[in-house]
Structures are given as C-alpha cells and as structure tokens.
Simulated scan of single mutants.
Amino acid sequence: MNIRHAFVAAPVLSLAYALIRIIDGFDGSRGPGLAWTSGHLAFLTALALFVPIMWEMRRLAGRTAAATIAAVVGTAGAVAAIAQFTIDIVVGFMAADHEAMRVLSDKVSSVPGVPLVVYQVGPMLFYIGLFALAAVLAAKGVLKVWAVLLILAAVVLPAASLDLLPISSLLLLGGLLPLALRSARATAALQ
C-alpha cells in the first residue's frame, strides 16, 4: 500500500472500529461475535498501518534523534496494542458469551507483566510516539500547529471515554491528512 493511502486508511479503520464498538454495545455488552471480531480486526489493521506511518513521519522529520526515538516508542506501543487486540480476538473466538470472555481475559491478565505491558503502559506508548512525531514535524515546519493539536486531541480524547473514539478517529484523520496530501504532491512531482 502506498504510504499516502495509509495516512488515510489507518484513521478510517480506527473509525470503523469505533463505530462497530458502539454498535456491539447496543445489547448491553461487547463481544463475542461478529461485531467484536470485525471491529478488532479493523483496529488491528489500523495499528499495522500506523507503524509505517510513524516511520514515514520520522523520514519527513529528517531522521533526527528525536524523531527516531519517537518512532521507536510509537512502534513499541503499536506492538503492545497489536498484542492486546490479538488476545481480545482469540478470547472472543474461544468464549461462548461475555462472561466466558471475562474469565479468559482474567487468566491472560494473571500472567506477570501482561497487564502492564499489553493493557496499561504499552499501548499508551503508541499515542505518545505518534504525538511526539507530529510535534517534531511541526518544529521542522513540515506540519502546521493546528494539525498537531488535532492529533493531540485525538490521542487524549479516548482517555475521557472510549465512546469518544469516533471523534478521536476523525480528529486523527484531520491531523494526518496534510501528510497524505504532502506525500501525494511529492509522488506527483517525481512522475
């Protein structure tokens, strides 16, 4: 996939996850089932796309030490989040109902280090790295401050409520869109 498409596809897939998550909760619980699995697969794909996005942001920042550290931190966070969503998908397949999912999730979480790395601190590194890369790009004049503020709002908003994920995804799309357009212009100039 062309990197400029990834700048759009990742937030759109995040939005798909967010909307499916809300729909899945209409019956009072989330998972297991088609909505649970499809939503998680959408976000898993988005996370996989965010890895090359972050490394492209590093490249656009001039491969500086700050950008490299931010890309490494963000990638580590993406890997932790990928582990979390993979576990959630497997638990969803193994469980007959929401209560069985809770029991299986508790077993996974009882493994030392898993809660911290996979559920608490690890995934936060993804958001920290993504925002740090946007800030470095703004400092270099590659990204406008308003785009960085959109990305900041996008990474902070879900902390208030996961039900705000659709808004967060749209803000993220708005913040990353200038980079997609920049990549499109650069590609057109080479042709």
Rank of each mutant, 00 (worst) to 15 (best):
M94I: 00
A95W: 11
A95F: 10
A95R: 07
A96W: 06
E99P: 05
E99K: 13
A100G: 10
M101K: 09
R102S: 11
V103C: 04
S105C: 02
S105L: 14
D106L: 08
D106T: 09
D106E: 14
V108N: 08
V111A: 11
V111K: 02
G113M: 05
G113A: 06
G113V: 04
P115C: 04
P115T: 04
L116S: 05
L116A: 10
V117A: 15
V117R: 00
V118Y: 02
V118Q: 06
Y119A: 10
Y119D: 10
Q120L: 15
V121A: 14
V121F: 14
F126V: 05
G129D: 13
G129V: 13
G129Q: 14
G129K: 13
G129Y: 12
G129L: 08
G129W: 14
L130F: 05
L130G: 01
F131V: 13
F131T: 10
A132K: 02
A134T: 05
L137H: 04
A138E: 12
A138S: 08
A138F: 00
K140A: 15
G141N: 05
L143E: 02
L143T: 02
K144T: 10
V145G: 09
V145L: 14
V145Q: 10
A147Y: 00
A147L: 02
A147R: 01
A147F: 04
V148H: 02
V148M: 12
L150P: 00
L150K: 00
I151D: 06
I151K: 00
I151H: 01
L152R: 00
L152V: 09
V155A: 02
P158S: 09
A160W: 13
D163M: 15
D163F: 15
D163Y: 15
L164M: 13
L164Q: 04
I167Q: 04
I167H: 03
S169Y: 10
L173H: 11
G174F: 03
G174I: 00
G175W: 04
L176P: 09
L176A: 06
L177T: 12
P178G: 07
L179E: 05
A180G: 07
A180N: 03
L181P: 01
L181I: 11
